[in-house]
């Protein structure tokens, strides 16, 4: 759905993006991961046509980005705000019209979303009279009001309170079910691990790696196994790392050292009753750090 090819952008002598390639499939949630300053926001601004790339191309549905793409994209910037003195209704109508909806469409869509969030009674309220959480809902509606096919969320969970963050998560999943492609950018990698189908890691203007989360993680084994045992009479080998002990119940984190999980399982059985046995992948953050270090070494 979205193809990015050899994208370059620099500000003066500072290089923000270099030779970046990305491919986002229709209907998936794509995570753009990387620390602050990696170039995520620059990439998002280029997709939104807020700034222009120095070279390279961005295609949507195989077509280079143009004015017509605006209607298809919804964008929630990292830091948010609305016109404080404007009413909820006027504000939402304005944003939908700016995105290219007709007056009639705009009215219908605004009504639909206010009903969907059960907040139709806020219509006449000014933003300054709303709580922060309420304003966040309006902000989200303003982002999706024109039924974008591609939704770009920059650090979506920062700044949202837990209740709204949960609501946002639900809405993201709903929108995905409705067929929306979602590009999610964040530096808090753990927050999106469960949400994203595909991710790309960016560091210092370059792509470090991409693929599905499972792919990446299995590529970055050695995986470890978390085991919970009810100890018998045999003592555990000293080199095994005990995470916690509760009465005679212990939790262990064991590396697979050339064994298959079944071999390990068999070995463990001799020590007592196995209550849990689970493969533990390194977190995306660990993978990221590992990857950054190895690229520095190289």
């Amino acid at each position: 759905m979205l193809e990015i090819h050899k994208l370059n952008k620099s500000y003066g002598s500072h290089c923000a993006l270099s030779e970046l390639d990305l491919r986002v499939q229709e209907g998936e949630i794509f995570g753009l991961l990387g620390p602050n300053g990696a170039g995520k926001t620059t990439l998002i601004r280029i997709i939104n046509q807020i700034i222009e790339q120095d070279s390279g191309e961005v295609r949507m549905d195989g077509v280079l980005l143009s004015g017509a793409s605006i209607r298809k994209i919804g964008y929630l910037p990292e830091e948010r705000g609305l016109y404080k003195k404007m009413s909820v209704w006027d504000q939402l109508i304005y944003f939908s019209r700016i995105k290219g909806l007709t007056a009639l469409e705009a009215k219908q869509r605004v009504n639909y979303w206010l009903e969907r969030f059960e907040i139709a009674s806020w219509k006449g309220k000014k933003i300054e009279d709303l709580s922060k959480g309420m304003a966040q809902k309006i902000q989200f509606i303003a982002t999706v009001i024109h039924q974008p096919r591609l939704l770009i969320l920059d650090e979506p969970f920062s700044g949202f309170d837990p209740v709204n963050a949960a609501l946002l998560k639900t809405e993201i999943i709903n929108l995905k079910k409705e067929g929306t492609t979602i590009l999610l950018s964040t530096h808090r990698m753990e927050s999106v691990e469960l949400l994203c189908d595909q991710v790309a890691m960016i560091h210092k203007s370059k792509k470090l790696l991409d693929g599905s989360i499972l792919d990446i993680k299995s590529r970055f084994r050695p995986a470890q196994i978390r085991v919970t045992l009810e100890l018998g009479n045999t003592a555990l080998p000293n080199q095994w790392e005990v995470e916690s002990t509760e009465k005679n119940r212990v939790s262990l984190l064991l590396p697979l050292q050339g064994q298959s999980p079944n071999q390990l399982l068999r070995e463990l059985m001799s020590f007592g009753e196995i209550l849990a046995f689970q493969e533990v992948f390194p977190s995306m953050e660990e993978i990221f750090i590992q990857q950054v270090n190895s690229s520095v070494d190289a």
Binding site: R45, N48, Q49, I50, I70, I73, Y75, P77, E78, E79, R80, G81, L82, Y83, K84, F95, I98, K99, G100, A142, T143
Partner: peptide
């Protein structure tokens, strides 16, 4: 300044 400080401008300039 209002539009800039509230970042409304980012949404707006992605549309016009």
């Amino acid at each position: 300044i209002e539009e800039k400080s509230t970042r409304i401008v980012e949404i707006l300039v992605s549309s016009l």
